[in-house]
Amino acid sequence: MIINHPLLGPRDASEFTYLGDASLIDRPDGTAENAADAFYDYAYLRDNPAGEHRELWYHEAGDRSWLVVTRNTLTHEISKVELARDVARTRGRSK
């Protein structure tokens, strides 16, 4: 596979390390009342869709960017690649 890195252009997927669903960006608040339930859901349950999947890849043999790749799990077609940092910010994460 080839991942079109937003900063570096197309790179072979073997340069990257895969983590999983991009929902791992949405880490719950550990101090909240329902933290135990929220973290169970966050750490263990997955949509695992057959189709479009937003997922985290790390450019381990490259610039060490974490990327959010939108890829179809039936065809492997990649429709979008974003810097995970940008995605995290749009999802309200900061410090």
């Binding site: 999983g20 669903d21 349950l45 997955r46 949509d47 695992n48 057959a50 799990t73």
Partner: peptide, 18 residues
């Protein structure tokens, strides 16, 4: 490998990835 799809029909999310 299709566990996610079939159990998804029951509205369940599983601790499983394909």
């Amino acid at each position: 490998g299709n566990s996610g799809r079939v159990m998804g029909m029951a509205g369940m999310r599983l601790p499983i990835e394909s």
